[in-house]
Structure formats: C-alpha cells, structure tokens
Amino acid sequence: MIQEPVSPEIESAEPEATRRQADVAESSRANRGWWDRNADEYQIEHGTFLGDDRFVWGPEGLDEVEAELLGPPEDLKGKDVLEIGAGAAQCSRWLAAQGARPVALDLSHRQLQHSLRIGGAFPLVCADAGALPFADGSFDLACSAYGALPFVADPVLVLKEVRRVLRPGGRFVFSVTHPIRWAFPDEPGPAGLSVAASYFDRTPYVEQDEEGRAVYVEHHRTVGDRVRDIVAGGFRLVDLVEPEWPSWNTSEWGGWSPLRGNLIPGTAIFVCVRD
C-alpha cells in the first residue's frame, strides 16, 4: 500500500474530531500514517508500563503470565504464534522467552523499528491484518493486544484471515476497548462517568485534516457485534474476559484510570478457537 504524502502544513494542523463513515482503505491508510507519526511518542509515554518483554492485555495491566489465555506458559514451547498489531513486539518477546516461535506483525513500519531497537530474535512483518502474507495453517496460536481490531472497518475480514493462517484447534485471543466505553466521554476523571452518546451508534470516530482526509480512525462494535463477527469469521467463542482494575495500578492511560476502572469495564478480551 502506498501512503499518500502529508504536507508539513497539514501534519502540523490540529485534526478535527468527528463521527463519519470510513471504509477499509481509508481506515488502513489513516491508521498506518497515524501510528508511523506517533510511534515514538507512544513508546516514550507507555513503554515503561508495557515493559520490553511483558505480555500485557490492556491498561488494567492484566498479564498473560497470570491470565494464561493462550494456555499455560509451559505449553507455549515450540508453538508458532502470530502477534497482530504488535507495536514494539513486547508480547512476542515474552512469547519467545517461553520457547514459542513468534512472528510480530504490524501495519506501522515505525512501530516495528522500535522492536528492532529493543531487540529480539524473531521475524517482524509490516503488513495489513486484512491481508496476512502467510500460507494457510502457518500458526498454532494468534494474539492481538489492542492491535488491529479496534481500527479496522471490516473485522470479519481480519477474523477470516486469522482463521485461514491458523491450524485446526488453534486459538485466537484479542483485546479491544470495552464496547460500553463508547457511550462515555474519553476522560479519566469524573466527567468520564456520565453517558454522553448512544452505545448503539456504530458511526466511526474519525480525526481528519483540513481537507477532510482521515488521519486516524477507530471503529465501534457492540458486544453483540463482536460475538457475531467472531462467528462469521469461523471461530467459536470460548470466553469473554473483562479485567477488573487492580489495586496496584495507579496509572492513567487516556480514558482509563483507577476511578473509571473500579466502576465500568475498560477492556474486553475475546478467546476464540478455530475448530
């Protein structure tokens, strides 16, 4: 995919936040550009929380070493695992330490450069989750911690691609912003505790430049939508995890905070199996 060049004037202008439709191509192009431009700031701001080699499912800090959503750590040895939306590949680094054979895939070239900076002996692939560059049945497991699924216009397409590259019996576990959060303002304080929008409004959140070109897109799906997408993608849903906010976590991450986390869920983790 060729990214359209962005002039310095447009890049420096404050984008307009709106709700409008954004198709597969526009969403992919906008989000590739956004993550390439913001990868450095993201890693500086959140790198300490994420660590270099931890597998964290979301801002609550739920760690795979405790959750075992992919299975017991000792069972990961020798498994081929695809991490989708890997960012700096912290999760893949943890998987490699368990003896797995991870492949870290991300839409953003700049995010993957941060993985090279940190280090790790596993493949890095820059590609779109809707067109995975792998043969059928290449992996035993797939995972995605806030990667790809919140940002794609056609989640079923991604799920079908993941199913295609998984072997029979393979598990796909992915986390996304909890759908209920879309009804509340994205604020960590008291202002974020009052319903401000319809939970049922699926209109994407779009940030666009002065010419109306999307520079960031996020797509809302209700819980029911997510379940139907999983089924349509050929998976069987075996668990839905809604992590509670732990007492040790005093951090704020965007709209996630101890105040809100103790009252409403912030993350939804879907555990799916390819029969």
Rank of each mutant, 00 (worst) to 15 (best):
A86F: 01
A86K: 01
G87F: 08
A88W: 05
A88C: 03
A88R: 06
A89Q: 06
A89N: 03
Q90P: 04
C91F: 12
R93C: 13
W94E: 02
W94R: 07
L95K: 06
A96P: 08
A96L: 14
A97F: 09
Q98I: 08
G99I: 12
G99H: 08
A100R: 02
A100Y: 06
R101I: 12
R101S: 10
V103W: 06
A104M: 05
L105M: 12
L105Q: 10
D106K: 02
D106P: 01
L107D: 00
H109T: 14
R110A: 15
R110G: 13
Q111H: 00
L112K: 03
L112S: 01
H114F: 04
S115I: 00
S115E: 08
S115M: 04
S115Q: 07
S115G: 10
R117N: 08
I118H: 13
I118Y: 13
G119R: 00
G120C: 01
G120K: 03
A121Q: 15
A121T: 14
A121P: 08
F122T: 10
F122M: 10
L124C: 05
L124G: 02
L124D: 08
L124N: 04
V125W: 05
A129Y: 14
G130K: 07
G130F: 09
G130L: 05
A131I: 11
A131Y: 10
L132Y: 07
L132K: 01
L132P: 00
L132D: 03
P133T: 02
P133K: 04
A135R: 15
D136R: 12
G137R: 07
G137T: 06
S138W: 03
S138G: 12
F139E: 10
F139A: 06
F139P: 07
D140E: 11
L141E: 08
C143F: 15
A145M: 08
A145W: 08
A145H: 07
Y146P: 07
Y146D: 14
A148H: 01
L149I: 15
P150G: 03
V152H: 11
D154A: 12
P155L: 13
V158G: 02
V158H: 05
L159I: 03
E161Q: 10
R163S: 05
V165K: 02
L166R: 11
R167Q: 14
G170R: 09
G170A: 09
G170D: 06
R171K: 10
F172E: 01
F172A: 03
F172T: 01
V173G: 07
F174S: 04
F174I: 01
T177H: 07
H178T: 09
P179D: 14
P179L: 11
I180A: 12
I180W: 12
I180D: 13
R181Q: 13
W182N: 04
W182C: 01
A183P: 00
A183E: 07
F184E: 02
P185E: 09
P185N: 05
D186F: 00
E187H: 15
E187K: 14
P188V: 07
G189N: 10
G189K: 09
A191H: 04
A191I: 11
G192M: 00
G192Q: 00
S194T: 06
S194F: 03
S194Y: 04
V195K: 12
V195G: 08
V195Q: 11
A197M: 03
S198G: 14
S198W: 11
Y199F: 02
Y199Q: 02
D201N: 04
R202T: 00
R202I: 00
T203D: 00
